[in-house]
Simulated scan of single mutants.
Amino acid sequence: MKTIIYTFGLFFLCSFSVFSQSKIVVFQTDFGLKDGAVAAMKGVSMSVSQDLKLFDLTHEIPAYNIWEAAYRLQQAASYWPRATVFVSVVDPGVGTERKSVVVKTKSGHYFVGPDNGTFTLIAESLGIEAVHEIDEALNRRQNSQASYTFHGRDVYAYTGARLAAGVITLAQVGKRLPDDVVRIPYQKAKLEANSIVGNIPILDVQYGNVWTNISADLLKKWDLKAGQKLKVTIWDGSKQVFEENIPFVNTFGEVPEGQNLCYLNSLLQFSLAINMGDFAGKYGIKSGSDWKIKISK
C-alpha cells in the first residue's frame, strides 16, 4: 500500500512539474495604445484566469514590421522566467492562410502568434523544442468565429492565457508541426578575411544609436584596443549609404561631444553612436533585414 501511495505521489509531482506554468503572459503588438485593442486582449486573458500576471513587452512596433517584432522578442525573452508565455501580434496577413502557432523553445519559453517570420530570431537564439498549430475549434474565444481580423484577441490572447494558466497543455494546443518556423533572411555576423560583416537589426530609437548583430565574442578575435579606428561601411540592400573611419571606445564620454564612435551596447553587440547626438538621424541609417554593415581594421 505504501509503495502504491509513494508511486502515485511521484507521478503526481512529475505530472505537476511538466504541466505547471508560470502564469505570466507578456504581450507585444503593433497596435499602439490609442484605442482599446490591447485592453481587449488583456480582458480575454483575465477571463480565462484572474490569477494570471499580464505584462507588456511593447505595443509600439511600427505597423506591419514583422522584423522588428522578431528582434524585440529576442531582445527581451531570455530575461523572463521559464514557462513565460509571449503573445506577439504583428500580423499583416491576419485571416489569410498563414499558420497560427505556439512555439516552445529549448529555454522553456512559449511564443504564441502567426508563423510569419516573427519567430525567426528566437528560434536561432533559444532553439526550438516543439511547434504546434493552434486548433481554433478548441482554442478560440467563444462565439468569435464571425470575426476574421482580430486573431490577437480571439485566438492568440485566448490560447496564450489558457496555456499560461495551465488550462491546456502544449499538446492540447493542436497538432504538432515540424520543429521549424518561417524565417526572414538576413546577413548573419561572420568574419571575412580582415573584416566582419553583419546586419543592423534595430536602432536604439530614443537616442539614434545604431545596433548591429556583431557580437563581442566575434570582436575578441581581433584583440581591439580602446581608441583603435575601424573602417565602417553600411549598405541599404545593394546601395552604400555610409563609410567612415571611427574610433572604438568603451563609453560615449571618451570622445568629444558631437563625434562619432563605435562601442559595445548593453547586449554586448557592436554599435555606432554620436556622443550627445543622433547617428541614425544624421546619416539616414535605418534597420531591418536588408541593412548590412562591414567593419574593417
Rank of each mutant, 00 (worst) to 15 (best):
V44R: 09
A39D: 07
V103T: 08
V103P: 00
D56M: 07
G117A: 05
V89A: 00
T120P: 10
A83W: 03
E124I: 05
K23Q: 12
L54N: 09
S20P: 00
N116C: 06
A123Y: 04
V94D: 13
F19T: 04
L54T: 01
S125T: 15
L13K: 04
A63I: 05
A37P: 01
S20K: 05
Y110Q: 08
T105N: 13
E124C: 04
S88M: 08
W80H: 04
G32M: 07
I66W: 01
F8A: 11
K42H: 06
S15Y: 14
S107Q: 13
K23I: 05
K53V: 10
M1I: 05
A39S: 15
A39K: 04
D35T: 12
T58F: 09
F19E: 11
G43I: 05
A77R: 03
S100A: 15
A76D: 12
K34Q: 13
P114K: 02
W67T: 04
M46S: 12
V90P: 09
L13E: 08
K53H: 13
V87D: 13
K53T: 10
S15Q: 12
K106R: 15
Y71D: 03
K106E: 15
S107W: 06
V48Y: 05
F11P: 00
N116K: 00
T96F: 02
T29L: 02
F19L: 13
V44K: 07
V94N: 10
M41D: 07
K99P: 03
D51M: 03
F86D: 03
Y64K: 05
L33C: 03
V89Y: 00
V89M: 00
T3R: 04
S78A: 12
A76I: 05
M41R: 07
Y6T: 10
G9R: 06
C14M: 14
K42T: 03
D30S: 08
G108H: 11
S47N: 15
Q21G: 15
K53C: 10
D30H: 09
K104V: 06
V90Y: 06
V112R: 10
Y79L: 05
V38Y: 00
S49N: 03
L57P: 01
S45V: 03
K106P: 10
Y6Q: 10
Q50G: 11
T3C: 01
